[in-house]
Each structure stands twice: as structure tokens, then as C-alpha cells.
Nucleic acid binder design. Structure first.
Length: 541
RNA sequence: GAGCCGGUAGCUCAGUCGGUAGAGCAUUCGACUUUUAAUCGAAUGGUCGAGGGUUCGAGUCCCUCCCGGCUCACCA
């Protein structure tokens, strides 16, 4: 019944999400046939999130990639599926993050479940609720389709109760699997079940004195007081420790697919074994590589190296970030500012091609192997394309010293009068980003030469002439003549040296646009300010 | 110690079912021009880390090795 036996391999689009969708389809088929009465639940894909911090670029990557597997699964099988974004908000607060207010208040709640820690921002019922809301807003901003799940809700509502009792039944087997992987000191206190302290609410990391699978309780001793407690594992009175928690969740919910970073390879293996002990089947999944910063170091939230989602989106549209995540998930990639332009143009090339492929065969393998088909969630079309590549816009911004989108648009219109922000929304978006990228990365790297005495006099003269010009409607040809006249008047020989001076002193580059046209678009007053600043800057040196 | 990934042009990288090695940038030359420029054309540049195997044919598949990077082994 497996699709892999019926569908010819050559029809499978050659894109990694389809390879993954195949694995997922096989997994679903297997659990359906393995179950006595059949198991026709929708395919369940899960992504995990730890709400001790804010969502970051890795969170985006995992949800985006999982969504693409889901999209491929739908295209491949036509069968229903769900994507569960699971927040482990019952996890204990281990240390106070350094980017939040009220840190001394939070200090008192170390060891408490995140869902019981007050919100330091004061906007939600708990710290976890705050971060969960941030996660949802973040995911919604990208238009992801998902169901949100709170670990605390699942535990307290009893949705995990049956699975938790099952854990007690096979408790010793689970221990036997986990203990050999731990160091001797950790082994002494390890328990897969973590009861919550009935009075303090703290997540207790102590050895269990006794397990009662029939009553569904554990007995343990409070190391602080010596007091002995008998705690039910059900109803949110206890939670599971990390790897066992993952396994229990896979088992309880019947997760069919979950991807994870390569740092979790051992955890996936171990959780899979525990899941099997419980009587379930570990989900299918993909191990992705981690991102590196500009120096090839692993990106971590605490170090703050690499690049945040916000930073990327300042310099390029979200589709380009999707393109980055789509490319070779199993390969380590540098995630830094300088990859943005190339990635953006990669996306644009794919989006362009997708339009053609859509027209030729809207359900063909070629279109479905196109990254843009995934990134655009199947909504391929000219609105997602741009007639001008991003790299060209950056060049243009640099040449024209474009510090506002309007300047850039002036040049673009001269290039093609039919193009406007209204007719080409993607281009409008790219223009804004190109200006930002230029301002932050290109312009600071420019070197502005100091003018010679002769040039200084000519520049002052030009500024004076422009002041006289102010008020009139800017005319490129008249301004060009004016610039030309000033150059001749000051005896530049050849005259091209005068223009070279303008570019090197005012724009910090060897070449530039036709200067009259530049002044008309850039603004007469703005150009005067540019000259004044250059003369002043030189005087201070 | 265990595991993952990589090594292709000066740089960053792509290379689909095994079929004459590609792109961008950089460099050089040319076209366009009141001076310059978004652009276009061309040239230069490779022992595909090394060795062996399979094959009519290997950057691509298999094995061994070398080099580099990362991850895990405390927590999640």
C-alpha cells in the first residue's frame, strides 16, 4: 500500500522536501497497517520550541522546512496532515536570560516551570505565555499554517496521562537505556520522571524511591527537608525529563515526522529507543546542519553572533530568507550579511522560472522541484517576481548614492517608464531593502578622497551656482551644462578629471552617474549639502 | 572517544538519472557616451583533496586514506 511501490521514482520531483514526504508517507502507511483496527489519522508533523527565550532564526528554519515537507506530502499523497508547534513551556527556568527586565525577580523563580514564572514584561500571565505569544506572532508573520500546543496544557489537561502511566510500567527498561549514557554522578540522581514539589512548585530532579504503575504515582524524598512525598505522575503533577519527554510525546501524540539539528543526533537515537519501549514508533525525520557565522563558528543565541531574522528582513524580503533555508539543509552554511544579495537573486531567478513552469505544466515535477514553489506556498505568479535583480539595485544604489527609495526609483523609471511601486510590489520591496543595505554596508566602506585646492575652489563655485539654481524645477540637461561650465571655468584638463573629482570626493567612488541627471534626481539642495559636507570634512582632517 | 558535514576557477559557491567542467564576483579588453555610469559582448582562469575499484565512460557510485570545520559526551 506504500506509495513508494506504486509511484514511479522518476515522477518524484527532485527536491529534498519530496524525499522527506516519501519517508513520511511510508511512516504513515506503516503505522496504519500495524494498528489492529487501522490508523487513518492525518499525518502529524511536529516542531519543538523552548520558551526560555525568544524565537530565533533556527525556529524559523525548522518551521519553514517542516512546512515544505508537509506541502510536498500533500502534493504527493493528497492526504490530510497537521503541523503541531509544540512549546515545552513546563520546562524549568534554568537561568535568567540577560535580555529581559526584572532579572532579580526572575532569579527567585529558578527551578519553577516556565509557565509558572511571572512575565517580566508584565503583559501575559506567565513568562512562558509571553514567549509563546511572541512565537505565534512570529510564525503568523510568515503566514505559516500550524496548530500551537502548550506542554503545560497537555500535561494538566490529562492528555498525556495514559502515556505517563505507560512510562511507569516500563520505567526500569527506560532507565536501562538512559543510565549508560550518563556520567556516574548524574546517574545517581537521574529520573525520567520529574515530580513537581507540592508546596514550592519546583521541578524536582531527584531519584525516585519507588514507582507504583498501578496507582500511577512515584515516591521521592525532598533533599531539603527530608520529607517524603507520593506524587501522581498524571494531571500535571509531574513532567518528563528531556529525552524521555520527547519520546513520551511522540508516543502519546503519534508524531509521524520531526526534524532536528545535528547537535541532537544522539538524543534522537535515544528518544527513538524509549519510544519503542513504550510501544510506539519513532517519527521519520531529517537531521539538518547548524548555521555558522562569518568566521565559521556555530551561531548561538547567547553569543549573539551570526544573524537574526530581524536583521535579515531589514535587507531583503522574507522570500529570500526562505530561499536560504531551502538550500541544502544538510549542509552547514555561513549565515551572514554578505550572503543576502546572492540569496535574494537566487530566489528571484527561481520565482521567474516558476512562472514559466506554471504556464507549461501547473502540476509538473519541474515546478514542484522549484524552491519558489515551496517558498510561495504554491502561489507562483508575477507579483512574486521583479524585473530588476537585487544585485543590480545594489549597484545602482551605490553608483547613485541612493539614500532614499525615491532616488532609486528615479533611475529605474528612466530605465523603464512602465515600472512603478504599484505595478511591481516585489521590486518596490527590493528597492527599500537595497537602500538599507547600501546605507549600512556599502556606503561606510567607501573612501572619500580629499579635494585639491583647485578642486576645492571649483566645488565651492559649483555649490554657489546650484544655490542660484534652487527654486527652479530641476532639469537634468540644464544642470549638466551648469556642471560642465564650472569645470571649464576652473580649467580642468582634460575635463573628465573634473567629473572624476566629483565622484571620488562626493560619492567615494571612481565612477558615477551622469552628474546633471544625478543632481536632478538626488535634489539640488541635497547636492549642495553633499558638497558643503565634503569641504567641511576635509578642513577637519 | 563517538558522530555529522565539507574539499570543484584568485574568492564565494552550483553541478539534477554516471555522458564534452558552470555561475556570480574579481582581473583584462571591447561596445555605448558632451565626462562617467545601471547595460551588453569577449577573454583569462580548473590534476574536481589523494589513491584504488565498478563502468564503454566517474566531479557524480563503492572502498581506503589525507586535510579542514562542526557537534555530542553537563543542560534542554
Amino acid at each position: 500500500m506504500s506509495e513508494s511501490q506504486t509511484a514511479p521514482v522518476s515522477d518524484l520531483p527532485r527536491a529534498w522536501p519530496f524525499e522527506e514526504a516519501r519517508k513520511l508517507a511510508d511512516h504513515v502507511a506503516q503505522r496504519d497497517t500495524a494498528s489492529a483496527g487501522g490508523d487513518a489519522r492525518p499525518a502529524l508533523l511536529e516542531t519543538g520550541y523552548g520558551p526560555s527565550g525568544l524565537p530565533h532564526i533556527g525556529t524559523f528554519g525548522e518551521v519553514a522546512r517542516t512546512s515544505w515537507v508537509r506541502q510536498a506530502y500533500t502534493a504527493l499523497t493528497g492526504r490530510p496532515s497537521r503541523l503541531l508547534a509544540f512549546s515545552d513551556d513546563m520546562d524549568a527556568l534554568r537561568k535568567v536570560p540577560d535580555n529581559v527586565p526584572q532579572r532579580e525577580m526572575l532569579e527567585k523563580f529558578i527551578g519553577q516551570p516556565l509557565s509558572r514564572v511571572p512575565d517580566p514584561f508584565g503583559t501575559h500571565d506567565s513568562f512562558a505565555a509571553h514567549n509563546n505569544a511572541r512565537l505565534r506572532a512570529f510564525l503568523d508573520g510568515f503566514g505559516f499554517e500550524y496548530e500551537f500546543a502548550s506542554s503545560t496544557d497537555y500535561y494538566t489537561s490529562g492528555r498525556f496521562d495514559a502515556a505517563l502511566k505507560r512510562v511507569l510500567e516500563v520505567h526500569d527498561e527506560i532507565l536501562a537505556v538512559i543510565l549508560p549514557t550518563l556520567g556516574p554522578d548524574r546517574r545517581a540522581t537521574y529520573s525520567p520522571v520529574l515530580p513537581l514539589h507540592p508546596r514550592t512548585g519546583e521541578v524536582m530532579q531527584v531519584k525516585m524511591d519507588a514507582i507504583d504503575p498501578v496507582a500511577g504515582t512515584v515516591r521521592w524524598t525532598d533533599p531539603a527537608s527530608g520529607e517524603v512525598f507520593e506524587t501522581p505522575v498524571t494531571g500535571g503533577h509531574a513532567k518528563m525529563q528531556w529525552k524521555a519527554d520527547w519520546a513520551m510525546r511522540w508516543y502519546a501524540l503519534g508524531v509521524d515526522y520531526e526534524m532536528s539539528g545535528k547537535d541532537l543526533i544522539d538524543s534522537v537515537r535515544l528518544s527513538g529507543r524509549i519510544c519503542k519501549i513504550l510501544g510506539g514508533t519513532a517519527p521519520a525525520g531529517l537531521t539538518y546542519e547548524l548555521f555558522l557565522d562569518d568566521k565559521g563558528q556555530k551561531i548561538s543565541k547567547s553569543k549573539g553572533n551570526g544573524l537574526s531574522v530581524e536583521e535579515w528582513l531589514r535587507y531583503a524580503p522574507p522570500e529570500s530568507l526562505g530561499q536560504f533555508m531551502f538550500n541544502q539543509p544538510q549542509r552547514a552554511k555561513r549565515l551572514y550579511f554578505d550572503v543576502i544579495p546572492k540569496t535574494a537573486d537566487d530566489y528571484l531567478a527561481h520565482a521567474e522560472k516558476a512562472c514559466t513552469q506554471q504556464a507549461q505544466n501547473p502540476t509538473g515535477a519541474e515546478l514542484r522541484a522549484n524552491p519558489a514553489w515551496f517558498i510561495l506556498k504554491g502561489q507562483v505568479g508575477p507579483q512574486a517576481c521583479s524585473p530588476v535583480p537585487f544585485g543590480m539595485l545594489l549597484n545602482l544604489a551605490s553608483v547613485a548614492n541612493a539614500d532614499t527609495p525615491e532616488v532609486l526609483w528615479g533611475f529605474i523609471r528612466r530605465y523603464d517608464a512602465a515600472v512603478s511601486p504599484e505595478t511591481h510590489p516585489m521590486l518596490a520591496c527590493l528597492v527599500k531593502h537595497a537602500v538599507a543595505y547600501y546605507a549600512d554596508f556599502v556606503r561606510p566602506a567607501k573612501t572619500f578622497r580629499a579635494p585639491t585646492d583647485m578642486e576645492r575652489a571649483a566645488l565651492a563655485d559649483l555649490a554657489e551656482c546650484l544655490r542660484g539654481y534652487e527654486g527652479d524645477a530641476p532639469d537634468a540637461a540644464a544642470l549638466q551644462n551648469l556642471v560642465f561650465e564650472v569645470g571649464k571655468r576652473h580649467g580642468f584638463e582634460p575635463l573628465r578629471a573634473w567629473f572624476g573629482c566629483l565622484y571620488e570626493v562626493l560619492l567615494g567612488q571612481k565612477e558615477g552617474p551622469r552628474f546633471g541627471g544625478f543632481v536632478a534626481l538626488y535634489g539640488v539642495g541635497e547636492t549642495i549639502a553633499l558638497i558643503d559636507a565634503a569641504l567641511l570634512r576635509d578642513r577637519q582632517d
